[in-house]
């Protein structure tokens, strides 16, 4: 419900949209906190839990990179939204862009295409990667299965809603 409200496109007025943007700001702060957790994991958990060597160094670098990316994205996004909240005219323009039905349709189609492309890549990895790694085969098959099960579940949900 909380996430649904954060990404709701229809707001009755600018004040309602302002509250929506404030909710998004909180989400970005949470993203920063997740980044900090990833950094802590990189410096304290990874050296203890992952074996040393090339694999351990890669894991440490991966966690550090992801954590840093989350922190930077969170801070930049939060600052941008704060600037938006200070400028009434820009807030109105942002609301206009958010509720623009053509932009929503573009997002919907892009998400659909990206989802299908991801599925196609995973299917390829499952077939080709399965020949060399059993774990890869199981992981790819599990993700493809999760996609189809969640698709059927959401399809049933929206069939009742619309």
């Amino acid at each position: 419900m909380f996430i649904k409200e954060l990404f709701a496109c229809k707001t009755a007025n600018v004040e309602e949209y302002r509250r929506l943007v404030q909710g998004r700001q909180r989400l970005l702060r949470a993203l920063c906190a997740l980044g900090v957790l990833a950094e802590l994991a990189a410096f304290f958990a990874v050296p203890r839990l992952v074996a040393a060597g090339a694999h351990g160094e890669f894991c440490k670098g991966f966690y550090t990179g992801v954590g840093l990316a989350l922190i930077v994205c969170g801070i930049v996004g939060e600052r941008r939204l704060a600037a938006l909240l200070r400028n009434e005219e820009k807030l109105k323009q942002a609301r206009c862009r958010d509720k623009d039905e053509r932009l929503q349709e573009i997002n919907r189609r892009a998400q659909l295409a990206a989802g299908l492309a991801t599925l196609a890549v995973l299917y390829g990895v499952m077939l080709a990667g399965g020949l060399v790694s059993f774990e890869l085969l199981v992981f790819s098959a599990a993700v493809v299965l999760v996609f189809f099960v969640s698709f059927i579940a959401f399809h049933c949900y929206y069939e009742r809603r619309l």
Partner: peptide, 13 residues
């Protein structure tokens, strides 16, 4: 676009 609450690009399209 401003009057109906959408972007100028949508009116163009």
């Amino acid at each position: 676009a401003d009057a109906v609450g959408i972007t100028r690009q949508t009116i163009t399209s």
